[in-house]
């Protein structure tokens, strides 16, 4: 479904991704883990074409993003949902308008149908009754849930999550993790989540990839984490669990 081949990305003389290879299967929830600043979010932005690799290629359903013109890329992006770390809600639109935005811009749905879809998505993320609040009037956890509702408004095939639980209390974090699994099952989507929180990966992911020195060091299942071959991966996971 999503394949990155030899992706290299540098900023100035600092190489962030160094020949990264990664293959994500259709329908799975894949967690990409690593320490802060290892290029997890940058990897995610390559998948949606927000960044272009200096070398290597990114393939979605067998199509190389580099060969796509603007229109094709735009059409492809309609298949994506993306939850930003900061939720990135449009600050002057209320919750309902934020979730409805992609539907109003890209579909010919009737206003009543849009309203129904928005209410359904907000029900999924347990946010009924706050539709007319502005992003500045809601908490960080609520913003993430609105961001998630917006990301899945168009029934995307692929949902990308950038640090979905960072800055949230443990209870809200668990709510978001459960939502990620739930959304994946309801939509039959493929999900990629970047996180530095092992709990996110254990509770929500089918497979977990570890990013070190610009490459994927190892891929494990949540159950196989403690038996990882790489010492760096074991140390990373144990460090987190010890914390």
């Amino acid at each position: 479904m999503i394949r990155l081949e030899g992706v290299t990305k540098s900023f100035g003389d600092r190489t962030i991704l160094d020949g990264l290879d990664l293959h994500i299967e259709r329908g799975e929830v894949f967690a990409l883990m690593g320490r802060s600043g290892t290029g997890k979010s940058i990897t995610l932005k390559h998948m949606v074409g927000l960044m272009k690799p200096d070398a290597g290629s990114v393939w979605i359903d067998g199509v190389n993003l580099a060969t796509m013109d603007k229109r094709a890329l735009k059409n492809l992006r309609r298949r994506f949902g993306y939850l930003f770390q900061s939720a990135a809600l449009i600050n002057w639109l209320d919750i309902e308008a934020n979730v409805a935005l992609p539907l109003r811009e890209h579909t010919r749905m009737k206003p009543a149908d849009i309203e129904e879809r928005v209410r359904e998505r907000l029900r999924w993320v347990r946010l009924v009754g706050d539709e007319h609040k502005l992003p500045s009037e809601i908490s960080g956890g609520m913003k993430k849930r609105v961001g998630l509702a917006r990301a899945i408004a168009m029934d995307p095939d692929i949902v990308l999550y950038d640090e979905p639980t960072s800055g949230l209390d443990p209870v809200t974090g668990r709510v978001i993790r459960n939502l990620i699994r739930e959304v994946n099952e309801r939509l039959g989507a493929t999900s990629v989540m970047v996180t530095h929180d092992v709990l996110d990966a254990i509770e929500a992911a089918d497979r977990i990839g570890f990013l070190f020195d610009g490459k994927v060091e190892e891929i494990c299942t949540p159950d196989g984490l403690r038996d990882a071959k790489s010492e760096r991966v074991r140390n990373f996971v144990q460090g987190h669990i010890a914390e």
Binding site: L50, R78, Y82, F84, S86, A88, I90, R150
Partner: peptide, 17 residues
Amino acid sequence: GTMKVSEEVDALEIMAI
């Protein structure tokens, strides 16, 4: 500028807007 640095502009691009 605030929308740009808080990734709201990126969010629009990803929504193909």
